[in-house]
Design a protein around this nucleic acid. Sequence first.
DNA 1: ATCAGCACCTGTTGGC
DNA 2: TGCCAACAGGTGCTGA
Length: 287
Amino acid sequence: MPELPEVETIARGLDAAIRGRTIARVDVWWGRTVDSRSEPIERLVGDTIASVGRVGKFVIIGLTSGRTLAVHLRMTGRLTVADRGTAAAVDRKGRPLPDLSKGRPLREPSKHERFALVFRDGGRLAFSDARKFGRVRLIDGDVARALDVGIDALALGAASLRALLARRTTRIKTFLLDQRRIGGVGNIYANEALFRARVHPKRRAGKLTALQRTRLLRELRAVLRSAIASRGSSVDDYVDAEGMPGEFQKLLKVYGRAGLPCRRCRTPIKRIVLGQRGTFYCPACQR
DNA sequence: ATCAGCACCTGTTGGC
DNA sequence: TGCCAACAGGTGCTGA
């Protein structure tokens, strides 16, 4: 599932690939991919990509008109660029997708493509999403307000974290996943940060000691930065804008390792469900 | 206001 | 081997 490091990797790749291109056509193959709160999506036609960035887990495509196309990949969404005459994108098994730049496709060009921007130069940005959970939303105005995402996990400071946690009774793991408080942290990195900080996922957010807060902040930033350096984690089927998987899944310490020995102390990693999400931790290391 | 629980989806997995 | 139910999960919405 794309979280902050994966979205950051995709955004950087897209910025290099599509900045300056002008939209000639928009293809919508699955209507609900366009968020119900979106401005009319056909307003994209004629607009030009100014830059691509990230807010929380949203890929933010800034346009020269001042509008913004926000894309949320949810679990299985992917954004890939195909240039005229090249087939940059590959499918889940690594096979190249057909080159669709020569002529108009009559139907969705690959099985899971839901949405695409077709550029005047013949290239296209395709949004594919097997489970149809991902959304695109054209925003005219204040992006931060529209998306309701809290402070970015990489911009979080000690004082902010302390204030956010104060008196909160929710579990720290659940808290980390609340995008309205902190933006960008998903299930994988919440598990990993808590393991590295040696904080038990069920601990009440407001009950962390000062030392635990310090460790959590340090380890959250460290794991996110390391994952960006590895171009993200390809646990399920994530690929970046060039269709390449990440490498960080090899460095995960608890996520997906239920029953396997803790890398610190050899105690079997435990899996529980918190807030209806798989939660992995070492019962010996994390307090 | 806050929070738990379900709906949204379909490819993959595990059990029989 | 083949079939099918259960499962995975981020967020929006609903109802408590």
